[in-house]
Design a protein around this nucleic acid. Structure first.
Lengths: 191, 191, 191, 191
DNA sequence: GATGAATGAGCGTTCATTCAT
DNA sequence: GATGAATGAACGCTCATTCAT
């Protein structure tokens, strides 16, 4: 089996279980069932894991969003589904999300993250584009920039809920509704 | 000068200069011109610094916002000014903001942050309340929740710009305009 | 007690006992009865010990030579005494001498050694100068350069004997006699 | 090409380029273009390389000396040529020379080095013998022992020059002249 | 014979924390 | 209160060596 992927997958799991700060490389290799030195064959340091994790996380997020959003649903429903999906991912992985957003993982790898995040931005942007062409949202929207604002808004809203606790179903429901309302107006969605 | 305050002020400065991860307590005490042991007279551990820093940062942010926003300006202008102020703070302190938002500083102190952030949320909420009472924004808005969404939106938008580089004046201008447009619709501002 | 000196003294002892290559920093601190971290207060690395050791070794060598050589002895006897003294030091510290002579201790510290060795060269040079002024050795001698040759010759001769074994009294006696004869002619000593 | 020889040749080269201490086996095999494991088919450990390297170095030194010294030159010229040759080798390989002289490579292999160095001592000894039989040098000389002194003297003189810097042509010229003068008297060369 | 991914014991180094002064 | 030398547990990382292919 591919050891590099194994390390990344296991690292995500261990980070979720015991927190990022407290995770030692020795914890990761133990969980992965490999030798300490093997880690260093694939990653020069603990920090170097981060871009790979970010990539996996974005893939995971995007695929959950894509699974949740129904192609033939009306745009207003799609927005609700996008919100649902992002809240879902945030609930389960907020610690890792936080890491990715914080400038933590040292400046050297920041550049890579831009590319890593690109597919997610692009997908949302395309949905906005579709809606705009169909006249369902206001025309003045710049889809690329707005996609980033939407993702930023929903993720930050979800983080506000899940930062302290993953068990916040009621709070989450209210917050999602509020975000939905917020977005309906922000995007000028017509029904 | 009060040593406790001195330590917090110096710590923020050192964090900005050389990054949070790389900052050792010895760096802070050196910069503060005090002895290693003196630190522990005021803070039981390195982590105990964080709530104090968060408090100062929120005070700083709020006071910048308050200075920027003119009491007698129309609400739409106030929104622009709020955006300007948050972008300004984010540009100068995005690393520390990131720290505060990420779950980084061990869970024991998270609760305190909530209270620490409260004044900022409250102030924005009050401005929304005023506007709603004057019928300048849509009535369906829940001010408390929306205040958090607005702050989350603007901060995440600013972070997208400044994460990689603090010198992004052109990018920032475009992003600010987009956020403004976004908020005008989201809040249903009437002119 | 001065910890820096303690470390150097103990390090020399430990190096002699168990060899330089096999000596870990933990061995040194254990023998010195200090904590691991304390070592790093005084020396940034194992290599950084070397100039300090060299200094002590040269001081030791010079003081043994000075003690052995009688001020009022005839020059030819002084030469014998110098040979005796250098052989003595080499027997007891040949491993450390070897270290000092090899380029081992990484190029960064080489420059310092030149200064460190200077007093020894100088002292020998002065003895040659005296002898030359008294017409006891050939006039064509450049004392400074010749001092280095003499020390190099005698030390290398001693090392040839003690490299493999410190118990070589017979061999040493013959070698010393040969070196003495060699030097008598090289310096053109007159009786 | 014979892999064993290849490894030794490459190792010498890599040692010269990046220093002995910093050279890992992986560097050697990389430079040799062979696999990590292949090294261990020919040498049971890293230390086992040392005698082989010493052998090659002595062969190299001896052959350079033999090439430089002209059979039919007068003995005084031969001495100059020997000095030249040894300075040349020392300039190019002083780090490896240092390794060979220092007790570095664990004691188990020291014995072998004695035998390895023998041919060089023997060759010089034979030249002295010739000269002594022809009455060109003083009769009291023991050629075997003196050969070692001569080699030790010249090598240490060369090391004093090249230890810090390989580019020392002026210094080297003066030092060689001084050594020559020194030897002329030590050996009692008659013209 | 040749390979090179995998190993893991071992070591150097860091740095938050303590405490005698 | 203030100091800063001393501490030592903790961890990152290296690299000689192995072995299944």
């Amino acid at each position: 089996m591919n050891k590099k992927e194994l390390i990344v997958q296991v690292a995500i799991q261990v980070f979720r279980d015991q927190g990022i700060e407290k995770t030692k490389i020795s914890d990761i290799v133990k969980a992965a069932g490999i030798a300490q030195g093997t880690f260093y064959l694939y990653f020069p340091s603990k920090l170097a894991l981060m871009p790979a994790i970010a990539e996996v996380m974005v893939e995971k997020t995007l695929s959950i969003v894509q699974e949740t959003v129904q192609d033939n649903a009306p745009f207003s429903v799609k927005i609700e589904q996008i919100i649902d999906a992002i809240f879902l991912v945030t609930r389960d992985y907020h610690e890792i999300q936080a890491l990715i957003y914080s400038g933590l993982a040292s400046t050297e790898h920041l550049r890579e993250w831009e590319t890593v995040y690109a597919p997610f931005y692009k997908w949302i942007s395309e949905r906005l584009e579709e809606a705009r062409e169909q006249g369902i949202i206001r025309e003045s929207i710049y889809c690329d920039r707005t996609a980033k604002l939407v993702i930023g808004l929903v993720e930050s809203a979800a983080e506000q809920i899940y930062l302290y606790d993953s068990e916040q179903d009621d709070q989450a429901r209210v917050q999602k509704a509020e975000v939905n309302e917020f977005l309906i107006h922000a995007l000028g969605i017509k029904f």
